[in-house]
Design a protein around this nucleic acid. Structure first.
Length: 889
RNA sequence: GGGGCGUUAACUCAGCGGUAGAGUGCCAUCUUCACACGGUGGAAGUCGCAGGUUCAAAUCCUGCACGCCCCACCA
C-alpha cells in the first residue's frame, strides 16, 4: 500500500465531492421510509462572495446534515440563493454606468433582462464556493427567490394578507434613501452618532405681539416645511403663547403654537418646530393636530419648489444657506455642537431622509403575537436560549413593516390601479381590466422588500402554495442555523409567516452562532482590511482543517476568534490522523484482517481502547444532540491524538514490530488480533470524524479495508455498553501513570534518553503487583527499561530516583549517575505539595458542618483521598530518609 | 433611554456548586523503524473587584469596575 508521508489536501479534495454528488448521496429520499430531517440553507445573496461567516455557518450545517444522514435519517438540506433586490440592482446599475448607460434609458424590461443575465453569469459563484466546502446539499432541489414557484408563493401571501387587511397602502413617513431612491424599512436603517449642531432660531410672533419663541433644531433646512411650533402643555414659559400665531422666518407663513406632551421641556428651548412631512415625531404630532404637510425635500434629497429661493439645492447645501440667511436676519440666537443619532442606509451608508410617501405596509402586530407565543410555549426553541429574550424584545415593540421598494429587481407588487374610476385591484392573476368600470389597469411600479420573499423560504422552497409531498413531509423543518444579526430581518419574519400560512413554526429550533472575528477579537470588515479569504485558508490549511477549526471553536454564545496558529494546529491534527492511518496500513501488510471476532483473545490494552472508543461514540453523539460542536470536536481531537496515537499505537508496536521483522517468536494470533483492533477503532474514528472532516476521512476510509462504497453513505457507529470495560480503563490508567512517572524520573534526573534503565516497583496491593508483573514487558518498552520488576521492599541504601504514583512506589536504581542533592530537592518539593493538600483536606474533614451536611459520598471520597495522600506522604518521607536527607529544603 | 453579553495560564477559550482544564505559545530534551505538521518531560492561574447565600463558590445572588454588542421617532 503506497501512502504519502504527509497529508496533502489538494490531492484529495477535488475528487470526492464530485463522486458524492454523482452518486446522489446528498439527495433526499422521501420514499426511503427513513424519518425526515430537513434544514434549509439561509439563501446567500447572488451578489455575495463567500466570506468567513458563511464558512462557519455552512460547516455547522454540514456537520449536522452528514451526521444525521449517517445515523439513518432522510436528510434534506435544501440550498438556494436570494435575489437581493437593492444589492443586485446596484451591481447591475454600476455595470450599466461603465457603459455610459442608466436603467431609465434602458427601460424596465430590458433592465430586468440584464439583471437575469448577471444572475446567470455570476449568481452561482457563491454556490460553487459552498460546494468547495463539502456542503452536502440536495442540489436537485436548489431554489432561487425569483423562481416561478417562489414568486407564486409571494403573490399568494401578499393577496391573502391584503384581503385580510394585514397589508395596506398608506401615505406615511418612511425612511428614504436619497441615493438608492427607495424607501427602506426601519431595520435597514442603521443609527449612527453624528456630530452636528443644535441651532436656536427665533420665530417671531405674528402681528408683532411679543418676541416670539426661540426654537431649537438640528435640521434648519426642514423649517421651510414647518406648520407649527409645539410646546409642552405644562410649560409656564410658553403657556400664554399656545394658540397664538408665529411667523415662520424666510417663508413668512403664519403657523400656530400648539401644546403637546411629546415635547420635552428640558431639551433645547422647550419649543419644537413641527415639520410633519420630514420628521416621524412631527408627522404623528401633525396628525394629532390636523396640521398641513408641506414637502420641501424631494426623493433625491434636493429642496422642492416649496422651498422658494432654496429650491433645487441639495438638503445639506440648503442648510448652510438657510443658517446664513437666519444669521443675517438676526434670528439665529445660538449654535451649539450637538451629537445625535442619525439614520443611515444599511446598503450604501447615505444619510436617511424621513420622507412623506405612499407605500405598502404589513400590519405586523397581529402576526407578532403568535410568533411570541410559539417561543414562549416551547414550540420553537432558541439555542442558546438567551436569544429568545432579544426576539421577544423586538417583536413586542414592533412597528408596521414598510414592504414596498422603488426598485425594478424583485417581486412586483400585485396591485393594479384604474385611473378611470380609482379602483385598486390586488390579485394573484394579472387582471385584464378594471372589474368595476372595465377601464385600463396600471400595475404598481414598486417591488417588494427582498426579506418579504425570504420570510416564506422554509415553505415556499418546498412547493407552497401547492400541497406538495415535500411540503407535507419536510415542514416544519428541524432546525435553522444562523447568526444573530438576522434574527429580526429573517428569523422572526419566517416564524410569523410560517405560523400564519402553515399553521406551524417553520423550524423546531434556531441555533444562533457567533461572529467570526480576527485573532485580536476585532470584527472583520473590508474597511479594516482584516478580512480573511476562505479560499486562501482552504488552500493553506486544507478544507477539513478549516472546518474542524470552525467546529471546535463554535462554543454556544461565543464569537469565534480566528487565529492562524490555531488553524495550523488542526492542520497538524489532520496530518496526525493521516499518519496514524499510514501506520496501520504499513503494519497490515497485505492482510485484510476480519473485524474483531467474538472469541478473539483481547489483551488488556485492546479492551481498554475498545472501551474508550465506545465511550467517545457516546460523548460525540451526546454533544451533537445538543449542538455542542466544540465538545464533539474536542473529544475526537483528544481521543485520536492522546489516546489512540499516543498510547494504543505505542502499546501494539512491540507486538507488530516482531511480526514485521519476521521473528520466529512473533505470536501470530496476537498480531492478527492487534490488527483487527487497530482497524476497527480506526474505522470507527473515521466515521465519527467524517461530518467534520469529510474529505480526509473519505480518502483514508477508501484506503483501509472497508465495506460499502462511500464513507459519506456509511452508518454512524453505535455505542455498545457491552464493549465498555471499567476495569480495563482503570488498569490502563495505572499503567499510564506509572510510565509517565518513570519517564518523569528519567527526565528530572537527567538520565540519557538512550540509556536502558532498571525499574523496580513496590505495589501496595496484590492486584496492582499482579498488574505490573503481567505488563512488565509493555512498561519496559514504553519507558526504555532493561527490566521492570516488582519487589517486596527496596533494599537498604538503594541509590535511586524514586517516586510514588497511585499506590505504586517506583525506584530507578542509578548507582553513580544520580545527583543526590537534585533528587532530595525534587522529593522535598513533592512532599511540600502533598502537605499543603493534606492540611487543606484535614481542615475540611475536621469541620463538623461538612461531615454533617455534605452528601455521604462526597465525605467518603474526601476520606479516601486523604488516606492515599497520607500514605504517599509517609513513603516520601521514608524515601527522603533513605537518601540521607529527611529535611526539606 | 432600554436590553443583552463578556471579564479563568502569555494568547484564544472550555468548565458553571465539591480547592482549576484544553489548544497554541514558552522552557528542556530527543532525529527511536506512522508522523519534526513529530516524541518525551516541564514551568505557568489569589478564576475582574466587593459583599452575600452555602458545610463547600470560577461555578448561585447583589452591587461595582472595565470591555463589547444590539435596539430606540428627544427636536
Amino acid at each position: 500500500m503506497e501512502i504519502d508521508k504527509e497529508y496533502r489536501p489538494e490531492t484529495v479534495e477535488g475528487r470526492w465531492y464530485k463522486e458524492w454528488v454523482e452518486h446522489g448521496l446528498f439527495q433526499a429520499r422521501p420514499e426511503s421510509g427513513k424519518p425526515p430531517w430537513c434544514i434549509v440553507l439561509p439563501p446567500p445573496n447572488i451578489t455575495g462572495n463567500l466570506h468567513i461567516g458563511h464558512v462557519l455557518n455552512h460547516t455547522l450545517h454540514d456537520v449536522l446534515a452528514r451526521w444525521r444522514r449517517m445515523q439513518g435519517w432522510d436528510v434534506l438540506w435544501l440550498p438556494g440563493t436570494d435575489h437581493a433586490g437593492i444589492a443586485t440592482q446596484m451591481v447591475v446599475e454600476r455595470e450599466l454606468a461603465k457603459e455610459g448607460k442608466d436603467r431609465h434609458a434602458l427601460g424596465r424590461e430590458a433592465f430586468i433582462a440584464r439583471a437575469w443575465e448577471w444572475k446567470r453569469n455570476y449568481g452561482g459563484r457563491i454556490i460553487d464556493a459552498l460546494k468547495g466546502l463539502g456542503a452536502s446539499c440536495d442540489w436537485t432541489r436548489e431554489r432561487f427567490t425569483l423562481d416561478e414557484g417562489l414568486s407564486r408563493a409571494v403573490r399568494t401571501v401578499f393577496v391573502r394578507l391584503y384581503h385580510e387587511g394585514l397589508i395596506y397602502r398608506d401615505r406615511y413617513i418612511v425612511n428614504w434613501c436619497p441615493r438608492c431612491r427607495t424607501a427602506i424599512s426601519d431595520l435597514e436603517t442603521l443609527h449612527e452618532p453624528v456630530r452636528g449642531k443644535l441651532y436656536t432660531v427665533r420665530y417671531p410672533a405674528a402681528e408683532g405681539k411679543g418676541k416670539g419663541i426661540p426654537v431649537a433644531t438640528t435640521r434648519p433646512e426642514t423649517m421651510l416645511g414647518d406648520t407649527a411650533v409645539a410646546v409642552h402643555p405644562d410649560d409656564d414659559r410658553y403657556r400664554a403663547m399656545v394658540g397664538r400665531q408665529l411667523i415662520l422666518p424666510l417663508v413668512s407663513r403664519s403657523i400656530p403654537v400648539i401644546a403637546d406632551a411629546f415635547v420635552d421641556p428640558a431639551f433645547g428651548t422647550g419649543a419644537v418646530k413641527v415639520t410633519p412631512a420630514h420628521d416621524p415625531n412631527d408627522f404623528l404630532a401633525g396628525q394629532r393636530h390636523g396640521l398641513a404637510q408641506v414637502v420641501v425635500i424631494d426623493t433625491a434629497g434636493r429642496m422642492t419648489a416649496e422651498a422658494g429661493e432654496f429650491a433645487g439645492l441639495d438638503r445639506l447645501q440648503a442648510r448652510k444657506r438657510i443658517v446664513q440667511r437666519l444669521e443675517d436676519l438676526g434670528l439665529l440666537l445660538d449654535v451649539k455642537d450637538h451629537e445625535h443619532a442619525v439614520g443611515h442606509c444599511q446598503r450604501c451608508g447615505t444619510m436617511i431622509e424621513p420622507l412623506l410617501s405612499t407605500q405598502w405596509f404589513v400590519r405586523i402586530a397581529s402576526l407578532a403575537g403568535p410568533a411570541i407565543e410559539a417561543v414562549r410555549d416551547g414550540r420553537l426553541q432558541f439555542v442558546p436560549a438567551s436569544w429568545s429574550k432579544t426576539y421577544f424584545e423586538w417583536l413586542s415593540n414592533i412597528h408596521d413593516w414598510c414592504i414596498s421598494r422603488q426598485l425594478w429587481w424583485g417581486h412586483r407588487i400585485p396591485a393594479w390601479y384604474c385611473d378611470a374610476c380609482g379602483n385598486v385591484e390586488v390579485s394573484e392573476e394579472d387582471p385584464p381590466a378594471c372589474s368595476r368600470c372595465g377601464g385600463t389597469l396600471r400595475q404598481d411600479e414598486d417591488v417588494l422588500d427582498t426579506w418579504f420573499s425570504s420570510a416564506l423560504w422554509p415553505f415556499s422552497t418546498l412547493g407552497w402554495p401547492e400541497r406538495t409531498p415535500d411540503l407535507e413531509r419536510y415542514y416544519p423543518t428541524r432546525l435553522l442555523i444562523t447568526g444573530f444579526d438576522i434574527i429580526f430581518f429573517w428569523v422572526a419574519r419566517m416564524v410569523m409567516m410560517g405560523l400564519k400560512f402553515m399553521g406551524d413554526v417553520p423550524f423546531r429550533e434556531v441555533y444562533i452562532h457567533g461572529l467570526v472575528r480576527d485573532a485580536e477579537g476585532q470584527k472583520m470588515s473590508k474597511s479594516k482590511g482584516n478580512t480573511i479569504e476562505p479560499s486562501e485558508l482552504q488552500s493553506r490549511y486544507g478544507t477539513d482543517a478549516v472546518r474542524f477549526t470552525m467546529s471546535i471553536l463554535a462554543a454556544p454564545g461565543n464569537d469565534i476568534p480566528l487565529s492562524p496558529e490555531r488553524m495550523e494546529g488542526y492542520r497538524a491534527f489532520a496530518n496526525k490522523l493521516w499518519n496514524a492511518c499510514r501506520f496501520v496500513l504499513l503494519r497490515l501488510g497485505d492482510e485484510r484482517p476480519a473485524r474483531i471476532a467474538g472469541d478473539s483473545p483481547l489483551t488488556l490494552t485492546d479492551r481498554w481502547i475498545v472501551s474508550r472508543t465506545h465511550q467517545v461514540i457516546r460523548e460525540v453523539e451526546a454533544a451533537l444532540e445538543q449542538y455542542r460542536f466544540d465538545r464533539a470536536a474536542d473529544a475526537l481531537y483528544h481521543f485520536v491524538w492522546h489516546e489512540f496515537c499516543d498510547w494504543y499505537i505505542e502499546f501494539v508496536k512491540p507486538d507488530l514490530a516482531a511480526a514485521q521483522k519476521g521473528e520466529a517468536d512473533a505470536d501470530q494470533g496476537r498480531v492478527a488480533t492487534a490488527r483487527a483492533v487497530l482497524l476497527e477503532v480506526l474505522d470507527t474514528l473515521l466515521r465519527l470524524l467524517h461530518p467534520f472532516m469529510p474529505y480526509l476521512t473519505e480518502e483514508l476510509w477508501q484506503k483501509i479495508p472497508h465495506e460499502g462504497d462511500y464513507l459519506a453513505a456509511a452508518a454512524w457507529p453505535k455505542a455498545d455498553d457491552a464493549r465498555l470495560d471499567v476495569r480495563a480503563e482503570r488498569d490502563v490508567e495505572i499503567l499510564q501513570d506509572l510510565v509517565v512517572k518513570v519517564r518523569n524520573l528519567r527526565a528530572e534526573s537527567n538520565i540519557d534518553p538512550s540509556r536502558r534503565i532498571e525499574v523496580r516497583i513496590h505495589a501496595s496491593s496484590p492486584r496492582n503487583a499482579h498488574l505490573v508483573t503481567e505488563q512488565a514487558g509493555l512498561i519496559a518498552a514504553l519507558c526504555r527499561a532493561e527490566s521492570v520488576r516488582t519487589v517486596e521492599s527496596f533494599e537498604e541504601g538503594l541509590i535511586a530516583a524514586r517516586g510514588v504514583v497511585r499506590g505504586l512506589e517506583v525506584a530507578v536504581p542509578l548507582a553513580g549517575l544520580l545527583d543526590l542533592d537534585v533528587e532530595r530537592a525534587r522529593l522535598g518539593r513533592e512532599l511540600a505539595r502533598i502537605e499543603t493538600e493534606v492540611e487543606g483536606r484535614a481542615r475540611k474533614l475536621g469541620n463538623e458542618s461538612f461531615l454533617l451536611r455534605a452528601p455521604a459520598e462526597v465525605v467518603e471520597r474526601e476520606r479516601a483521598a486523604q488516606k492515599e495522600m497520607l500514605d504517599k506522604k509517609k513513603r516520601l518521607e521514608n524515601t527522603l530518609a533513605s537518601l540521607g536527607g529527611g529535611t526539606r529544603p
